[in-house]
Computed example of a mutant assay.
Amino acid sequence: MLPLFAFFGLFQGPAPAYKNLAPAQFSKAMSQKGVLLLDVRRPDEFAGGHLPGAVNIDVTAPDFAQRVAALDKTRPTYVYCRSGARSTRAANQLTQAGFVHISNLIGGVLEWPEKLVR
């Protein structure tokens, strides 16, 4: 028999090891000194417009794990994509790779209220 909390859907499993931030929270947090801003979209999407100061590493590329392994895992890392799906995937991979402070932009650049740069 299932425990009562599981029966009513109250148990959702462990929380992600990263934070999901709304655009306003993400904007404020990413402006701090020493952060890594990671755009995980394809290079053509990045070239079409990205957040200022972002580094582009495509989460769907076969060398994604190798490329992020070369980054400083202790730096606060802010990750985003177009809608939030790929950045969620990337945040999970970064967690597994040992990154300590990860934040994910909810809604991606589709929800970003500020102008993107090229």
Rank of each mutant, 00 (worst) to 15 (best):
A15E: 15
L37N: 02
F7L: 14
L116W: 12
G48N: 13
A91Y: 09
L36R: 03
M1Y: 05
P52E: 10
L38F: 14
K115W: 07
H101W: 12
G108R: 04
A61Y: 09
V100N: 05
E45F: 05
D58R: 03
G108A: 06
R82K: 13
R86S: 10
G84C: 12
L36K: 04
F26K: 02
Q66N: 03
E114H: 07
L116K: 10
T77E: 04
L36H: 05
F11C: 07
D44Y: 01
A69K: 08
A85M: 15
V68G: 01
L51S: 02
P43E: 13
P62N: 14
A15H: 07
G107E: 06
T74G: 01
L116R: 11
A90Q: 13
F99Y: 15
L10T: 10
N104T: 08
L51A: 09
L4P: 00
L110M: 13
P52Y: 03
A85G: 15
G98R: 12
L21M: 15
I57P: 01
L10C: 11
Y78P: 00
D58Q: 08
T60D: 10
R89A: 12
S27P: 00
L36I: 11
G13H: 11
H50K: 10
G9V: 11
P14S: 15
G48V: 04
F26C: 01
R86M: 08
L94N: 04
L37H: 04
S103I: 03
V117H: 10
P43Y: 12
R42G: 02
A6N: 11
E114F: 09
Y78W: 00
Q32Y: 03
R89C: 04
A17Q: 09
F7D: 05
P14K: 15
L116I: 08
W112V: 02
I106W: 05
N104D: 14
S31D: 06
D63M: 03
A17N: 06
G53V: 04
A29S: 14
A15F: 04
S87M: 09
D44E: 10
R41Y: 07
Q32L: 05
P62G: 13
Y78D: 00
V55G: 00
V55K: 13
D72H: 04
F26N: 02
S87E: 14
D63W: 03
H101V: 09
K115A: 15
D63G: 01
S31M: 05
P16R: 11
K33M: 06
P76F: 06
P43G: 09
E111A: 12
E111D: 06
L2Y: 03
L10G: 15
N20E: 15
I106E: 14
F26G: 01
V100A: 14
E45C: 01
A24S: 08
L71Y: 02
R89L: 14
V117K: 14
F26R: 03
T74Q: 13
G98S: 13
F11D: 13
V109R: 04
G98D: 12
I57K: 03
L94C: 12
L105T: 08
P62K: 14
G49A: 06
G13C: 07
K19M: 06
V100R: 13
V35Q: 06
C81E: 11
R89Q: 15
D58I: 02
T95W: 14
F11Y: 11
Q93R: 14
A29G: 06
A91N: 10
I106M: 13
